[in-house]
């Protein structure tokens, strides 16, 4: 078999190189998003052609992007974290109470948000990695706890009146060279909220972490096969711990971004966000069995998810009901695709 002409061999191999699982799923995700957005522009008219329409998707989903990034990380590492949605609600409520009732300023409230995220990450990470308890159960307890604590801090919704915070919430960052003309012919530049910048920063930071740092690559190795990872000389427990810790931090940051977007505290904030985050990750090409996934994919996963919501809304269907069904259908298709890929890979091995 070594006498094969090297040219044809390397050609064959090159074809295969393009198709690592992560890249294949990432490619599918981006393609789905682009096709979906183009369809929306073609069939649903002008609303979607304005740059602001696209940036509004970002404005609406900045926090979901951050939560999904954390979720992807844990899923790549072979775990799951279903507490992120309720941690978001807890962060909102804690920060709101801090700003309005305790006379805090925005900087201390940010510290509180990070602290809450860190605390959840630390405890859950410890239980999962070092006590080897199933991540689903641990984070389910985290979900319960965050939910209860939110209500215990304050049971009802209220809007934050802190001036400093209101100014921060209202800050709009203009996007250079993008915008549209209104009916009077004036140029209205497109804008994004501060949260979007944070989200973009998180995406880039995590993308780089996963791509170029040792820890980031260890996430993939542990998720791929944690026994092998151990044999290859990787500290599996520490790696799992870090995954949950970072996910907790993301929940803290995402929670604050959500808070900046809505400007209020409420026990019902971000309910179900964990499921949206999981769905985005899966649509973004993260394998729930671990080891495969990409933060860029997750980013597009969130965009796909919200684009489809927007499409359903502009089709005039009752949004709340139809979006859920569409999201679930999308999730189902992506799960089946993954399952088939996995089955094909396993059969190849034999």
């Amino acid at each position: 078999m070594f006498t094969v002409n090297t040219d044809t061999r390397s050609k064959k191999l090159k074809n295969r190189v393009a198709l690592t699982d992560t890249n294949l799923l990432l490619f599918i995700t981006i393609a789905v998003f682009v096709v979906m957005y183009l369809c929306a522009i073609i069939f649903l008219g002008k609303g979607f052609t304005k740059p602001q329409a696209f940036f509004n998707i970002l404005n609406e989903n900045a926090s979901l992007i951050i939560l999904s990034c954390g979720m992807s990380l844990v899923m790549i590492c072979g775990g799951i974290d279903i507490s992120v949605g309720q941690v978001t609600a807890l962060v909102c409520m804690a920060c709101a109470v801090h700003l309005d009732f305790q006379g805090g300023n925005i900087y201390t409230s940010m510290l509180i948000a990070l602290g809450i995220g860190l605390a959840f990450g630390l405890v859950q990470g410890f239980l999962v990695a070092y006590l080897e308890i199933q991540p689903f159960i641990v984070t389910l307890a985290g979900l319960f706890f965050a939910k209860g604590m939110t209500t215990i801090i304050n049971a009802s919704q209220f809007n934050v009146e802190n001036e400093q915070f209101k100014a921060l919430k209202a800050t709009e960052v203009t996007v250079p060279l993008m915008g549209s003309y209104n009916k009077a012919g004036d140029f209205i530049p497109a804008y994004v909220e501060v949260g979007v910048l944070v989200a973009v920063f998180v995406v880039i930071a995590l993308f780089c972490t996963l791509r170029w740092t040792k820890l980031g690559r260890n996430f993939y190795a542990v998720g791929g096969n944690n026994q092998s990872a151990n044999m290859l000389g990787i500290n599996v427990k520490f790696t799992k711990f870090m995954a949950h810790l970072i996910c907790g931090l993301c929940a803290g940051i995402g929670g604050y971004v959500y808070f900046m977007h809505v400007g209020s505290g409420s026990p019902s904030h971000a309910s179900g966000a964990e499921m949206n985050a999981i769905a985005s990750s899966i649509i973004g090409g993260t394998m729930l069995t671990g080891g495969v996934g990409n933060i860029a994919g997750t980013f597009f996963g969130v965009l796909s998810l919200s684009t489809i919501k927007n499409i359903v809304a502009s089709l005039g269907l009752d949004e709340a009901w139809w979006t859920n069904i569409t999201v679930a259908a999308m999730l189902c298709i992506f799960l089946l695709v993954q399952s088939v890929i996995l089955a094909r890979k396993n059969s190849k091995k034999k």
């Binding site: 992560t22 690559r217 993939y220 190795a221 998720g223 791929g224 096969n225 092998s228 044999m231 080891g291």
Partner: peptide, 11 residues
């Protein structure tokens, strides 16, 4: 090792 202890999802 006797069993292949590498990660199939990595390059």
């Amino acid at each position: 090792y006797q069993e292949i202890t590498l990660c199939p999802n990595l390059t």
